[in-house]
């Protein structure tokens, strides 16, 4: 079981806001899902290695060469706010 304060802390880590009116419900849902996870404790995983990749294989890497996959202008077209080749955000330094 976890409490509302923990859920708020997790939301802050995830850069999400949970309103005061939603926190009770969000906490209840959170605990409902955590209860589903309780079943994991019944599995004996002594000396079992974690499985990160279902093929258990090393990832193949490309050669370390420079290539252009997407043009810069195409990428900048989706920027919510930009100037020249820069993304604009609120002022960080005063």
């Amino acid at each position: 079981m976890t409490d509302a304060a923990t859920v708020r802390d997790v939301a802050a880590l995830a850069r999400l806001v949970i309103s005061d009116q939603d926190i009770e419900n969000a906490t209840a849902e959170f605990n409902q899902i955590l209860a589903l996870f309780d079943a994991l404790s019944t599995a004996d995983t002594t000396n079992v290695a974690p499985m990160i990749n279902p093929l258990d294989s090393a990832q193949r890497l490309r050669g370390d060469g420079i290539e252009t996959l997407v043009d810069r202008a195409g990428l900048m077209q989706n920027a919510p706010a930009s100037e020249k080749d820069y993304f604009l955000v609120p002022r960080v330094l005063e």
Partner: peptide, 21 residues
């Protein structure tokens, strides 16, 4: 985010990766 947090990582995320195997 919760299951990846330091306090829960072993109990949930690592355990799930083991059960996955």
């Amino acid at each position: 985010t919760f299951t990846l947090s330091a306090a829960s990582y072993d109990q949930y995320f690592m355990k799930a990766q083991q059960v996955r195997r």
